[in-house]
Computed example of a mutant assay.
Amino acid sequence: MTVTAPATYRHTPSPLHAIMLAGTVPLFLGALLSDITYYNTYQIQWSNFASWLTASGLVFCGLGLLFALINLIRADRKSGRPVMYFLLMLVTWVLGLVNAFVHAKDAFASMPSGLILSAIVTVLICITAWTGLTNLRSGEAQ
C-alpha cells in the first residue's frame, strides 16, 4: 500500500515578492533621511530627493501589495497572518501616497508633516517587511 502525504502550502513570499518587499525599506528610509537632512539644512535638493525616493518606494510597495493580495487569495483561511500582512502593506501604501502628496507641495510647506509622515511610513514598512519575511526563516508550513 502506498502512503501519500497531504500537500502543504506555505504563504511565504515568492523571490520576486521578497525583492519588492525588501527593496521598499531602503527607499522609504532614504526618504526619511533626506527629509531629516532638509529639515536641518533647508537645501531644496534634499526635498526633491525625498519626493523621488517616496515615489520609488510607492512603486515597489504597490507591486508588493499586488503580490500580497495574490497570497491572500491563495492562502488558507485558518491563518490570520496573510490578512494582517496585507492590511499592513495596504496601510503603508496609503500613508506613503499621502506622504507623496505632501511632498508635492512647495519644499518648505512640506515640513514638518512630510518628515512626520516619512517617519511613520518607514516604521510601518519595517514592521511589514518583518511580518512578511519572517515566515521565510521560520519554515512554517500551512
Rank of each mutant, 00 (worst) to 15 (best):
W130K: 00
L90V: 10
L115N: 11
V91H: 00
L33T: 09
A50Q: 05
V83Y: 12
G30M: 10
A22Y: 05
A75G: 11
N99D: 15
G62N: 03
A129Y: 01
A141L: 03
A7E: 10
D76K: 11
S79W: 13
L69N: 07
W52Y: 15
G62H: 05
M1A: 14
P6H: 10
L136H: 11
V83L: 13
S56P: 01
T54G: 04
A18N: 06
D106S: 06
G114R: 00
L115S: 08
Y85N: 02
S138F: 05
V121R: 01
K78N: 15
I44W: 03
L53R: 10
S51M: 12
S138E: 06
A22H: 12
I127A: 07
A129P: 01
L33M: 15
L87D: 03
L124G: 05
A75E: 09
P26K: 10
H11M: 08
L88K: 01
D76M: 02
I116G: 02
P26M: 14
M20V: 05
M84G: 09
S51E: 15
V91T: 11
R137D: 08
R137W: 14
A7I: 05
P112V: 03
I19M: 04
V98G: 04
I127E: 03
L72N: 15
L63G: 06
G139F: 04
R81A: 03
I125Y: 03
Y9V: 08
R10H: 10
T37H: 07
A119H: 01
N40V: 06
L66I: 12
Y38R: 07
F60K: 00
Y38G: 01
H103Y: 13
T24W: 06
Y39K: 08
Y85P: 01
L29T: 15
S113T: 12
S56G: 15
S110M: 07
S118R: 02
A55T: 11
G139P: 04
A50V: 10
P13Q: 07
M20Y: 12
T2E: 13
P13M: 10
V102G: 06
L66M: 12
L21K: 00
F67M: 04
I70R: 02
Y39G: 13
I73Q: 07
L58C: 09
V3T: 14
L33K: 06
S110D: 12
L117Y: 14
A100G: 06
D76P: 04
D35Y: 10
V121H: 04
P6Y: 04
L97V: 15
L29E: 13
F67N: 01
P112E: 07
L136K: 08
L27K: 02
G62K: 03
E140L: 07
